[in-house]
């Protein structure tokens, strides 16, 4: 039951995260991933939408296979990204993992209402964080079959 992603070309991951520390931690965690992946990092919603629509300066980027989305960001936050993304016929099939510090019920509810594919609270400890990222990798990059576009 290996995903097609595990063998052939690398999985393209878009990380939308305004905090460089968190971004780095995610990068570090995914370095140890079994699945071959390429991580692209943008720091807010505006950049994320530009990346997804391949607008300058992202004219040459690949279409991500999965999006790791932080909620609280400057300029355009994760909720707005979700809303716009899920309205866009071309983009709404890309699975979105909300990865955020917030444990608020409202955020969880709102995210699922906006058709987020899953919602994960970032744990405080490094080990827990690594475990979470590993889980994402296991589930979303190995177990799940993603649409081929």
């Amino acid at each position: 039951m290996m995903s097609s992603n595990s063998k052939g070309s690398a999985v393209e991951i878009l990380l939308v995260e305004d905090n460089p520390g968190d971004a780095r931690l995610t990068i570090e965690a995914l370095k140890e991933a079994k699945v071959h992946n390429r991580l692209h990092t943008v720091s807010d919603g505006v950049e994320a939408m530009a990346f997804l629509r391949r607008e300058a300066p992202y004219t040459d980027v690949p279409r991500p296979d999965i999006i790791l989305l932080d909620l609280n960001m400057p300029r355009m936050d994760g909720r707005e990204v979700l809303a716009e993304l899920k309205e866009d016929a071309a983009l709404k099939m890309i699975p979105v993992v909300v990865l955020t510090t917030s444990q608020a019920e409202e955020d969880i509810m709102r995210s699922y209402n906006l058709h987020a594919n899953c919602y994960i609270s970032k744990p405080v400890g490094l080990d827990q964080f690594l475990t979470v990222i590993r889980s994402i990798e296991n589930f979303w990059l190995s177990v799940v079959r993603l649409p081929k576009v």
Binding site: N19, G21, D22, L25, E28, N72, T101, S102, A104, K122, P123, V124, G125, L126, D127, F129
Partner: peptide, 24 residues
């Protein structure tokens, strides 16, 4: 209170995570 506690969590996580990364 909500925003403060929420926003406080991130730096906290940075401290914890990078301390632990350092140790590791």
């Amino acid at each position: 209170a909500y925003v403060a506690s929420h926003d406080l969590q991130e730096p906290l996580r940075m401290v914890t995570s990078y301390m632990q990364l350092l140790e590791k």
